[in-house]
Design a protein around this nucleic acid. Structure first.
Lengths: 207, 207
DNA sequence: GACAATTGTGAGCTATCGCTCGCATTATGT
DNA sequence: ACATAATGCGAGCGATAGCTCACAATTGTC
């Protein structure tokens, strides 16, 4: 029974104390990403910002990438909680109404933590262990597809998986572009207009 | 008349020799981006790959970012040459036909140098001097808008700028997602189907 | 209170980064 | 041929990166 040297991260935060350390690290990473950007987010700096020693950092996260991945996971989880709730709400609503609501939520979701969202979208290389961002996308596609399946009588689509891909990709791109372009804040009027347009786009396609 | 010390990049490649050096540097940058990724693309490595000394590199490009920007510019220029040509071709065609052709070209454009395109899309931080990637997008929007303007009788849109934004964003996102997801190569059949769907999406929206 | 896990510490290692500068080589003009 | 400008070179600087390790402090268990 090899005594497993302390090299690899321990990962199990069994005591409250260590749980707090882990949280502090993730919080600090998010704060630094927003304030200083990805390039200037070094592990040393993150540890300092968290009020934690660099050694402790490496007990829980093997790399800067792992830390950033934790931030992304948390952000995506926040978003998906909203998205899941709305899919449940609209499950029994007719297509037009449902799509309008989903589009509105897509925009809303992009505004949960816009500064962080922007950094994640613009600066994080989508490579290595960071590529699992797409798990979030896959869930969105699956949710949309299953909505379409239970409303297939309302629409005339052959391949609902493909239709879901087209809809989700378009909606996401529009929300993304709108939020990123308009610096920081999309006026309510502009948001309304965009919702109208995106809804027309998608509903026209589905029926 | 201060003799302007040799510090800042000279930039003017007046002789053939230096033109070749500059080209070698940009080529090498592209090759390294594709082979090793953005993070491992250091100026030292780029110079070595180009068969040029690090000193010479800094005579023409003040930073790694500048080099990457040159690669992006060249790639975008390649794409826009294709896109401009197609817009000219379809200028007098009816909406359905034109949109179908434009969608096809969007996908085609994403396949000009797919590996490089992927790296640029996934790994390059869109920050600092690298953010001007969007100039290319603006031209695409403008071209599409002016197409819509000269065919406004065929469609019922109030704000053609907005309509162009919606269409270009959607088409771009669909082409992008399709090319990036299917690793390396999109089957012809899948591409055909996608063209059909995207065309329906956009045409349905415009009319 | 004693002893072992668990958790926390930070000086400091090696590697690499972006980049400078003094000098060598090659082209141009006369 | 010579002078001058243009171009090319690369050892090496200071800074910072990611990360390790020997040790200290805290907590849980009996």
């Amino acid at each position: 029974m090899a005594p497993k040297p302390l090299t690899n991260p321990r990962k199990n935060a069994s005591q409250d104390r260590s749980r707090a350390t882990v949280d502090a690290l993730v919080d600090a990473t998010a704060r630094i990403l927003v304030r200083d950007g990805f390039d200037r987010a070094s592990t040393n700096r993150i540890a300092e910002e968290a009020g934690v020693s660099i050694g402790s950092l490496y007990q829980y996260y093997p790399s800067k990438e792992a830390l950033v991945a934790a931030v992304i996971d948390r952000h995506n989880h926040d978003i998906m909680r909203v998205v899941r709730r709305v899919f449940a709400e609209v499950a029994s609503q007719p297509v037009e109404r449902a799509v309008r609501r989903l589009v509105a939520v897509a925009i809303e979701a992009h505004r949960i933590d816009p500064k962080l969202h922007r950094v994640l979208a613009e600066q994080i290389p989508r490579t290595g262990r960071l590529e699992n961002v797409e798990a979030f996308n896959r869930e969105a596609h699956a949710l949309f597809k299953s909505y379409l399946e239970s409303h297939s009588d309302e629409l005339h689509a052959a391949d609902l998986g493909l239709a879901a891909f087209v809809c989700v990709t378009s909606i996401e791109a529009l929300a993304h572009a709108a939020v990123l372009h308009s610096s920081e804040k999309l006026s309510n009027k502009a948001a309304e207009t965009l919702i109208d347009e995106a809804t027309r786009l998608v509903v026209g396609y589905l029926k």
